[in-house]
Design a protein around this nucleic acid. Structure first.
Ligand SMILES: Nc1ccn([C@H]2C[C@H](O)[C@@H](COP(=O)(O)OP(=O)(O)OP(=O)(O)O)O2)c(=O)n1
Length: 644
DNA sequence: TTATCACCCTAC
DNA sequence: TCAGGTAGGGTGATAA
């Protein structure tokens, strides 16, 4: 089960209209919009979260703050509101906001105190609403970033009857409303979310961003911050919160620091992950509003691009009554020759296989010939027959919309890849890689859209033609390699394709060094590419040496892109990359693979055996044994592995 | 004891 | 226009 969502709702205020905003961004200078000024405020109340039952009975805890980032790399905390006097925090102004608490209170005193507290909170909410409503867009960037827990604040405003609060948009007198929504897709899973209407402002829920863009074992703000920023929240255990609050200036200061950090971390993450830049690019390329990139799926992007292209050509999109269509065959996975290979294995891979198939063969809604009578009006060289038995006209007759869409998407991806190549910083490389992959996914989704049974415009003819071409191509590649690189043709060894999945072939050329393998791989890729129409391209991608092939979609190997040294250890489908195991298993298998591949020690079993006695020793941390995975249908919480 | 299935997550 | 696709391994429950 996914953990409780952390306090990570971020909001961006854009001064100009969306169109104006993006049209003012120069083509090649995305970095120029890096935030210059960030305003952030955040309120945290453990009791309201319902996570700390102890705290619920204790009305004392209320701390909030406002933080500002102005051009500096570190956010500057402008105001810290505390309840009770609090010792200064460096670089901040601390402001006392409530009456002092007493350690012991009578019943009457407590009630009076609670009433005071509500008054303070009400005033806080009013101040915030005013602050938001009058927040001037930054002169230089035209926007501000504000971080706070919007659902929480709206609920508090409701509970305290602060009627002036929920008017946070840029349209005066337009009430901010909140409702639940669910989003269900195979790729993202079932997500429950809150939809909050704020005209003229765009919401980025960092928790949702992280769920979509990253694959982590835990999504608490704490662990995410540690993972990406290398720093954690100031850890204040909930059981001591009220003690700290009731203590003195110094203890309350600790609490305040904790809250400041909470407000600042999401903004730092947003910046570090370059969310704004990447999402803006995606919105521009696919032609959807910025907020859709997060709140909607892939279909809307494809539809938007279709409509854009259709309008250019004076075409209309039909309203399709989607009747239930049956599934269609997908890609081939070559039967693996399982084993441990202590010689280099070259990997050849079609670049953007499905999109390039659609481009090469001009597959589109607008080029499909439904009926045989349509074919009779054309000469045979004006159309093609796909391996699945469907017919499409050639681009000389009419160029399809989908190929044009794909061209745009792929060129955007190409640019992203070029930038990735230039980048030296390893963290930024990861971010740029994610951006490149997101564009690839969007391109593949164009194909997926045509096969989407629940979609608005499914067209199985297209999708099954694409996959049938793909099957044919991987077959052909395998045969070409094996036929050319054999003893009969004067090569020292018979090459063998030991495995392949959808668009890739793993070739054992028989040669003993990485360099030779690369040489042959490059040559083979070029040779095979030449047999396919533009823009289909088979690329030499990498060499694995050594290579452990366990099963279909499960393998590991040392990854070489240069002859001298390996880049990394690459694991696919194995427990080390799966998140439904406990960490112990992942760690164990990781060490085994290290020994097997890095040290080439093929007698690893004895090492594992000594490790395996570990769980029975009390020194193994229980956290290593926690298994967490998503539970759908049935309810329940995390499962814990136990030994009794 | 083996076959089948639902479920999770991953590789394309 | 709420919601990209198929292939496939591994696990544990249940049927045969
Ligand atoms: N999420 C995905 C991933 C892949 N595919 C399909 C379409 C791809 O063309 C094909 C091969 O996938 P790859 O992961 O090898 O990626 P590409 O070949 O598209 O890109 P590249 O190899 O250039 O990274 O599988 C898909 O439909 N959806």
């Amino acid at each position: 089960m996914k953990p409780h969502p952390p306090v990570t709702r971020c909001q961006i205020e854009v001064d100009v209209s969306y169109e104006d905003f993006i049209s003012h961004l120069p083509e090649g200078e995305w970095q120029a919009i890096a935030p210059v000024r960030i305003l952030s405020f955040d309120i945290e109340c453990a009791a309201e979260k319902g996570t700390f039952p102890e705290a619920q009975r204790d009305p004392v805890i209320q701390i909030a703050n406002v933080a500002v980032l102005q051009g500096e790399t570190e956010p500057f905390v402008k105001n810290v509101f505390t309840l009770g006097r609090c010792a200064p925090i460096a670089g901040t102004d601390v402001r006392v906001f409530a009456p002092e608490t007493k350690l012991c209170m009578s019943e009457a005193e407590l009630r009076k105190y609670e009433a005071e507290l509500r008054k303070c909170e009400t005033q806080l909410l009013k101040e915030w609403a005013e602050f938001l409503q009058e927040l001037d867009p930054d002169i230089i960037t035209g926007y501000n970033i504000v971080n706070f827990d919007l659902p929480y604040l709206l609920n508090r405003a409701k509970a305290l009857n602060v009627d002036s609060f929920p008017y946070l948009g840029r349209v005066r007198d337009s009430r901010t409303t909140m409702r639940d929504s669910t989003f269900d897709s195979r790729a993202y899973g079932k997500r429950v979310n809150k939809i909050i209407s704020i005209e003229g402002r765009i919401q980025f829920d960092l928790f949702q961003i992280l769920l979509r863009d990253t694959k982590l074992r835990s999504y608490t703000l704490n662990s995410v911050s540690y993972h990406f920023l290398g720093e954690q929240k100031e850890d204040v255990h909930h059981s001591i919160i009220s003690t700290l609050q009731k203590g003195n200036e110094q203890t309350r200061r600790r609490l305040a620091v904790y809250c400041v950090k909470d407000a600042v971390l999401p903004i730092r993450l947003l910046d570090k992950l370059m969310c704004l830049i990447n999402y803006m690019e995606m919105a521009r390329v696919t032609g959807v509003p910025l907020a859709y990139v997060l709140s909607r799926g892939q279909q809307i992007k494809v539809v938007s691009q279709l409509l854009r292209k259709a309008r250019e050509k004076d075409l209309l999109m039909p309203v399709h009554k989607s009747e239930a269509q049956e599934e269609y065959a997908g890609a081939t996975v070559i039967e693996p020759s399982r084993g441990y290979y202590n010689i280099p294995i070259a990997t050849l891979d079609f670049s953007s296989l499905y999109p390039s198939i659609m481009q090469a063969h001009n597959l589109c809604y607008t080029t499909l010939l439904f009926k045989s009578t349509d074919r009779e009006r054309l000469t045979p060289d004006q159309y093609i027959r796909t391996p699945s038995g469907n017919h499409f006209v050639k681009s000389s007759v009419r160029k399809g919309l989908l190929p044009e869409i794909l061209e745009d998407l792929l060129s955007a991806r190409k640019k992203a890849k070029a930038e990735l190549k230039e980048e030296k910083d390893s963290f930024r490389r990861k971010v740029l890689d994610g951006r490149q992959l997101a564009l690839k996914l969007s391109a593949n989704s164009v194909y997926g859209f045509t096969g989407a049974n629940v979609g608005k415009l499914p067209c199985i003819e297209i999708s099954q033609s694409v996959t049938s071409f793909g099957r044919q191509m991987i077959d052909q590649s395998k045969n070409l390699v094996e036929r050319k690189y054999c003893v009969a043709n004067g090569y020292p060894f018979d090459a063998k394709v030991i495995y392949g999945d959808t668009d890739s072939v793993m070739v054992r050329f028989g040669v003993g060094t990485v360099a030779e393998s690369m040489e042959l791989g490059r040559e083979a890729a070029e040779m095979i590419s030449a047999t396919f129409p533009h823009p289909i391209k088979l690329e030499f991608e990498k060499v694995y040496f050594p290579y452990l092939l366990i099963n279909k979609k499960r393998y590991a190997g040392l990854f070489f892109t240069r002859p001298e040294t390996h880049d990394k250890m690459d694991c696919k489908g194995i427990e080390t990359v799966r998140r439904d195991n406990c960490r112990l298993v992942a760690r164990l298998i990781d060490t085994c693979l290290h020994k097997l591949l890095l040290d080439r020690n093929q007698t690893t079993h004895c090492v594992c055996q000594t490790e395996i006695s570990d769980p029975l020793q009390p020194r193994v941390d229980i956290s290593q044994l926690v298994i967490s995975k998503e539970l759908t249908r049935t309810s329940g919480s995390k499962e814990y592995a136990t030994w009794t």
